[in-house]
Simulated scan of single mutants.
Amino acid sequence: MIRSLRTALMVAAIALPLAACGGRGGNAVAKTDLAASKVTTIGVNAYLWRASLDTLSFMPLVQTDSNGGVIVTDWYVNPQVPTERMKVTVSILDQDLRADAVRVAALREVNRNGQWVSAPVAAATTQKLEDVILTRARDLRRASIAG
């Protein structure tokens, strides 16, 4: 799965600058920018997909669907807080690299007397994860255009 994603990103990185070279006039930079924000090899934006995988790499993954744009993690227990665990679902909603194209949902449980009990997740937690994913996606896009 990771190898095919890397291959897709490498193909996109090679093909995007070449796509801007052809055509009938127009602004080549605008075409490159548009092409860099779109995806043709998987169903969702490749930068958001890669950034989501990178951001959640410390958590065990249960499901990944690059065509549907869904990543689901298994429960993760932070070794520094063993009485708490989290489960995250990332949904990529668009082929464009946009702030509203990624949604994070999280579940949190705390251990009370040996039983895992649902606990609220701070809204700032999911917002922070979305921000980290978007920042990483923008960095990946910049690197592909510059390189």
Rank of each mutant, 00 (worst) to 15 (best):
Q63N: 14
I133V: 09
E130Y: 02
Y76F: 14
D65N: 14
Y76C: 03
V81E: 07
V104S: 07
S57K: 09
L61F: 15
V62Q: 15
D131G: 15
D74M: 14
E84G: 00
V117K: 08
A105W: 09
V77G: 10
V77T: 13
V104E: 06
L97M: 01
T73R: 13
W116K: 04
E84H: 02
L129I: 10
V102I: 11
T64K: 11
F58C: 06
W116Q: 07
L93S: 10
K128R: 14
T89E: 13
V77A: 09
D65V: 02
G114A: 12
A106R: 01
L97H: 10
Q95K: 15
S57C: 02
T83I: 10
V70F: 06
D65P: 03
R98Y: 10
V104Q: 06
V70Y: 02
E130A: 07
N67L: 04
A106S: 12
N78H: 11
E84M: 10
W116G: 02
V81L: 13
Q127S: 15
P120H: 07
A106V: 10
V88E: 05
L93C: 04
D96Q: 13
G69T: 02
N78M: 05
P120S: 09
R85N: 03
N67W: 04
R112V: 11
V102F: 01
V104P: 08
Q115W: 06
V72N: 15
T89Y: 05
T64L: 13
I71C: 10
V104Y: 04
A124Q: 14
V110L: 11
V88Q: 09
P60E: 10
V77H: 08
V90K: 11
W116Y: 03
P120N: 08
I71G: 08
L61M: 10
P120T: 04
Q127W: 08
R85A: 00
S91C: 05
V132F: 11
V70L: 13
E84R: 06
L129T: 02
D74C: 09
N78F: 07
K128I: 00
E130N: 13
V72G: 02
N67Y: 04
Q127C: 08
D131H: 15
W116C: 00
D96L: 11
I71T: 12
S57N: 12
S66F: 06
N67G: 07
Q80S: 09
V88K: 12
K128L: 14
Q80F: 03
K128P: 02
Q95I: 09
V62H: 13
N111H: 12
R112C: 05
T73M: 04
R108K: 04
E109K: 10
D65Y: 05
E130D: 01
G69R: 00
V90M: 07
R108M: 01
N78D: 14
R98N: 08
D94A: 13
A119Q: 00
R103M: 09
E84Q: 04
T89C: 05
V88G: 09
V117P: 02
L129F: 07
T64S: 13
A106Y: 09
V70S: 10
V72Q: 14
P120F: 02
V81Y: 12
